[in-house]
Design a protein around this nucleic acid. Structure first.
Lengths: 234, 234
DNA sequence: ACCTGAACACCGTTCAAGT
DNA sequence: ACCTGAACACCGTTCAAGT
């Protein structure tokens, strides 16, 4: 059976003679980034290798470098994609001037796509972070926060988000089928407590049940509320 | 010249016959972690390889695995070291019940040792983060914050710190001799602004001069103050 | 100009062999 | 029990050779 053309996983046409030949359709940066996001959503950052990406695009590993500078550039671009769509999502959901809604959709994107939190927290002031900054800032403006306070306020909010982003994939990474998130946190706390004796850990001990049973999303919202009242209180 | 013993870089004695032979003194986990911290402070996370570490300890790469589970374990332990000493530092500087001082010494440790921020933000709820959590929480307790609020309050504070931690090494990584931090941020912002046209970036445009001239440490303090007033306002 | 895929220079990690 | 260092199975990235 001679097939003369085939549908590649991302929907582009390629030729498929027995020996590898020239692509029928040129690769594009957008196509590459879309494929990268799919791999990231599927298997996380470790699954995204140039070999895997090239295979999915039915091309050679080297070809990708014609459209993307390196792996950092690639993941940064994927993050821009993910953040934009999260913020567009917020457009639909929310009334204008509602920071909580914007922050929550960013949070949801981050906790759904674990690679995103890792990426946002790993390269400083990358475009995706500036995108968040822009949106949070303009929301603050719409809320009537004075211009002089907007920069500091946006900064705490975004940093809080990034901080949470870095901690959010907690249970998922380490726990197998047997350990849920809660017992993971509990055992981490227990491990820390047993780090002593140089110091005891009275605070962790006291709140360990809260730590174990808290919901990340609720906690995030509580943090946003604290920050917003702090901003208002000035 | 026959040397029969030598002083290794970390001060332990090793034998040094022409052919590699058995260590005179056993390796210890503490010794390994101390050497790892030194390498990290020197050249960052990329410089820390098992080969480099083994060379510095005058041993084989495989020997390290007898004391450390893997690279993650190693860097996590290094982070515990760094955080502990930063918090001990805070003990000397500060009156009890002064969160700002505690937060600032953590910030200073993170901006001095860039690998630390990356590490704290990369592995969720690792021991070093719990160490910070414990200290911040007990400080809040000493300030008289009601127990019911302590968990949420400690959480925002620590997440703000981690968020900043992830962004702090901004200029250092990308700028060469020619570009300072400020022009880095400026050009990042400019790049983001030119991402359009789907959206314009009014907020970034408006605050870009602030973004370019701000001091990370001041900004961090401003964030802490906002959070503290938010916590107090309840 | 773009693509191909083998080759290069690294990694973290393992493990048979030694003491 | 601990250590040694070669070997393994990967990476990201480069580049001569093709179209």
């Amino acid at each position: 059976m001679e097939r003369r053309s085939d549908l590649c996983q991302d929907g582009s046409m390629i030729d498929s003679h027995p020996r590898a030949e020239r692509r029928v359709v040129a690769l594009s940066r957008e196509q590459i980034i879309r494929a990268a996001v799919a791999i990231l959503d599927d298997g996380g950052i470790d699954a995204l290798t140039f070999r895997a990406l090239a295979a999915r695009l039915s091309t050679g590993a080297g070809a990708i470098y014609h459209h993307v500078a390196n792996k950092g550039d690639l993941v940064a671009a994927a993050a821009v994609d993910a953040v934009s769509s999260a913020l567009t999502q917020a457009d639909d959901d929310a009334a204008h001037g509602d920071i909580r809604a914007v922050m929550l959709s960013a949070f949801d994107a981050i906790s759904t796509r674990r690679w995103l939190g890792t990426q946002l927290a790993s390269a400083p002031w990358q475009p995706a972070v500036l995108l968040l900054f822009e949106r949070v800032g303009s929301e603050l403006d719409a809320m009537g926060i004075p211009e002089a306070s907007q920069f500091d306020a946006a900064s705490v909010l975004v940093h809080h988000l990034l901080g949470i982003a870095s901690q959010v994939d907690a249970g998922n990474r380490l726990s197998g089928r047997h350990t849920g998130r809660q017992s993971f946190l509990e055992s981490a706390t227990a491990a820390a407590i047993s780090l002593g004796p140089p110091v005891a850990y009275p605070f962790l001990t006291r709140i360990s049940s809260q730590l174990a049973h808290h919901d990340d999303r609720d906690q995030f919202q509580a943090g946003v509320d604290i920050i917003v009242s702090g901003v208002m209180a000035r």
